[in-house]
Amino acid sequence: MKTKVALVKGGYTGEAEVSFKSAAFVYAQIDKNKYDVFPITVSLDSWFYEDESGNKHEVDRQDFSIKLDGESIRFDVAFIIIHGVPGEDGRLQGYFDMIGLPYTSCTALTSALTMNKGYTKAIVQDIQEINVAKSVLLFEEHRSKAADLVLEKLSLPIFVKPNAGGSSIGMSKVSDWSELRKALDDAYDAENTGYQVLVEEFVTGREFSQGIYRDSKGVLQVLPATEVRTTREFFDYEAKYTPGLTEEITPADLNEEQKERADRIIKEIYIRLNCKGMVRIDFFIENNTDKFFFIEINTVPGQTAQSFIPQQVRASGRTETAFYGELIEAALTS
């Protein structure tokens, strides 16, 4: 009997558009000889499975089951591919824990922690060889005086972004103080991000993104890094999802010492944050100093054909089909 996989997509934020594209790619790659895959959409309005005829079948949220032709379908595992709320911030993971359904991502606690960029930096900053940019974490209560707090503590240029957002939505680079108020408003008002803002000083260096996962045997596997070079001022939403604006080099041109150091640090981040499944870690290597600067961790990274993780999987000599199978099997055995 095939393993029944719920491929959970959608979400409550602007990242749902990316989630649908990721889910379509994952669905196409999963081995259908081994797995029965049911794409499940989670939205603010409803949770449902849409069959090949376009008929929608509501999910019973008591046990995350669906009914097809009068038969109740229960899933063996959930493959979470929701970027942002509620698939990356721990809400969905907590629900699955309560009903006893295994899933492919980090736990509820780790997901909730890592969704908060400021809190994550506080946890990882004492890892040997890691550096973090100087920053200010702002809450809703700080909004009226946010600009003054930033002016007092940081120097230009700076990045302003939602503390619990993704896909660079609501993110701005500020090179002149006259731009700060609008950047703060954009970050505060980003949909479903909790009215928290992280402001960081700019690090001048090469930007990289690198995946890591624990396979079905429990062994940590670090994927080759990708270097990101964009024609935009920074790697914003348009640069991420508009063809031609960004050059992505996989595997990245790192010397052997840099590669070994990045792999070592990324493994330690994964362990320190108690990660599961696949995650992606973004970092800078600073010009002149060669220091490793942590940017953020993504616990449900994008999975479109051009996304970093599939690129890195292919560069490592694996196929996406084998990779997704490893993630499913690891979730079932963890």
Rank of each mutant, 00 (worst) to 15 (best):
L154V: 12
Y49E: 01
Q196T: 14
R280N: 05
V59F: 03
F159W: 08
S72N: 11
A122Y: 00
Y237E: 09
H83P: 04
D185Y: 09
S316R: 08
C275Y: 06
K121N: 02
T3L: 11
N255D: 15
K134P: 05
T230H: 10
V199Y: 02
I271L: 12
A122C: 01
T114L: 02
T193R: 06
F323A: 05
L198W: 07
L156P: 03
P251M: 02
C106Y: 02
E152L: 11
A190T: 14
S168R: 13
R74V: 05
F38M: 09
I265E: 02
A190L: 01
E248A: 02
K21C: 12
M1S: 15
S172E: 10
K4H: 14
K56V: 01
A315R: 04
F323D: 03
A147D: 14
F235A: 04
F96S: 04
E179N: 08
K2T: 13
N255Y: 12
T333Q: 12
S105C: 09
K182G: 02
N255A: 06
I73C: 06
F96E: 03
E207W: 07
A146Q: 09
R261V: 05
V203W: 04
Y119E: 09
T226C: 14
E260A: 15
A16Y: 04
A6Y: 03
G211D: 10
Q312I: 00
K259C: 04
Y195F: 14
I130D: 07
G165C: 11
Y119A: 13
D97Y: 03
D236L: 04
L138D: 02
G170E: 01
V222W: 03
K2A: 13
E17I: 13
P157D: 10
V313F: 09
V8S: 10
A146V: 10
A190V: 02
V59L: 09
T104E: 06
